[in-house]
């Protein structure tokens, strides 16, 4: 268990990249990119996890109770926002590419550039 979260994060990173490489549809590709990104959430949160800790929220639990790291959670929040904004922009680009060229397939886009 002590290593599993990192292994899963590595797996997500690479499977997402693989998805980008084999993608035949730009919208599919943007989703694969968000899978790559999910690996960063996992690795950040895993690095800040403290065995036996609660969430770093001291409304019902007293300060001083063993809690996990709050900083990586703040970083992950920023990361999530960055992810959704980039996805929105890339989807908008994909919509326009389709409108101009009639295809979303990177293969066809490359070959039919004229």
């Amino acid at each position: 268990m002590s290593y599993l979260p990192f292994a899963v994060a590595v797996y997500l990173f690479l499977i997402g990249l693989w998805g980008i490489v084999i993608s035949r549809n730009l919208i599919h590709l943007v989703v694969c990119l968000s899978v790559v990104q999910s690996s960063t959430y996992i690795v950040l949160l895993a690095v800040g996890y403290r065995a036996g800790g609660t969430a770093p929220i001291f409304l019902d639990v007293p300060v001083g109770r063993r809690a996990v790291d709050p900083i990586v959670q703040a970083l992950t929040l920023t990361d999530v926002v960055v992810g959704v904004t980039v996805s929105a922009l890339l989807l908008a680009l994909a919509v326009q590419v389709h409108k101009r060229s009639g295809t979303l397939d990177p293969e066809l886009l490359t070959s039919s550039r004229d």
Partner: peptide, 29 residues
């Protein structure tokens, strides 16, 4: 189409680059 495709390639590769940076940050943290 050209600029759109250029922007898309720019966006995807550079975002992947950002994830590499984040991974590096996570390791260092």
């Amino acid at each position: 189409t050209g600029p759109l495709q250029g922007a898309l390639n720019f966006g995807v590769t550079n975002t992947v680059g950002a994830f590499f940076v984040l991974w590096g940050i996570a390791l260092l943290y």
